[in-house]
Amino acid sequence: MEVGVYWGCMILTSQYAYEVSLRTVLPELGVSIVDIAEVSCCGTPIKNVNQKAAIYLALRNLALAEKTGVEDLLVPCNGCYLSFSEAIHHWTKDDNLRTEINNLLMEEGLKFNGNIKLWHTIDFLHDKIGIEKIKTAVKKLLNDLKFVSHPGCHILRPSTIVNVDNPEKPEKLDNLLRVLGAECVDYPEKLDCCGAGLLLSHSETALTIAGLKLKAIKNLAVDGLVVSCPSCKIMFGAKQEAIGTIVGEKFEIPVLYYTQLLGLALGLEEKNLGLELNQSPIEKILEKIS
C-alpha cells in the first residue's frame, strides 16, 4: 500500500523522532511512504490572522498531495489534520471560496479535486492497516508496561469536521497500545488540552496547563504517557523539566510517540526509532522491554 505523508512544520523542523519512527515502522506493516514536494505550513498559525489564507495553504498542500497520485494522505500532526479537514469542509460548502482558491492554485498548475482521503496516525493504524494486522506483526509483547494515552484535541474536535475517534470517549489509541500487550488505563484528565496553543503568547500559563495534567498522570503511577501529536509531545516531553519548576513538582514521566512503542513491539532497533531524541527519562521503559 502506498500512502502520501504530509509531515507539517513541527515534525520537519524539530520533532524528528516522530518522522524517524514512522519511516521505520510503516514499511514493516507493508506501507510505502510517498513524500510530497514543495509543501508549506498547513495553515493553522495563519488561521489566527486570516482564515481564508489558512484555507489556501491547506488546499495547496492537498493539491500537491493529489498531484503525486496517491489516494490516501497520512497527516501525523493533529493540528495539520484539523487544518486540512476544515479546509475541505469550506471548499465543499462555499462556491465563491472554491472558485477563488482554484484560481490561485491554477497559477502553479495545481488543482484540488477533493478525492484524497485523510488519515491521522491513530485511525490509519487502527482502521486502515487494522488492529488485527498489527497483532500478527508484533514480535515482542510489552507485557509489563502500563500507560496512559493523550490523543490530543484537534483530531477529536469539532466532531462535525474531524472524526478520527469518539470526541468525548476516545479509545483507539488505547486499543493500539493494548494490542502491543501493554496495559492502558483510562483517567479523568484524558481529554485535557496540553496547552501548546498558548505557548507562544502566554508561555507560563501554557506550561502550567500541561503541568496540571502531568500532576494527575504522576499520581496514577503509570510507566509512561503516549502521544501522537508533535505539539503535545513538545509540551509533555521536552518541556517537562521546565513545567516541573513552574508547578513545583518533580516529574520523571517517560513520554513517547505511539509509533516508537509500536516499533519496539515490532522488534525494530532502538536507533531507528529516534528514541535517543526523547527528552523525558524513557530508559525505565527501554529496560523493561529488553
Binding site: C9, M10, L12, T13, P45, S201, Q279
Partner: peptide, 28 residues
Amino acid sequence: VPEVYLKVVSAILDTGLIQEEQKVTSRD
C-alpha cells in the same frame, strides 16, 4: 495582535514553514 503571531506569519512568508530546521540534542 500579539507580536509572536505576526512573527510566525513572516516566517511562513520567508521560508514556507513556521521556523527554520532546528538542530536537536539527544539525552546523551
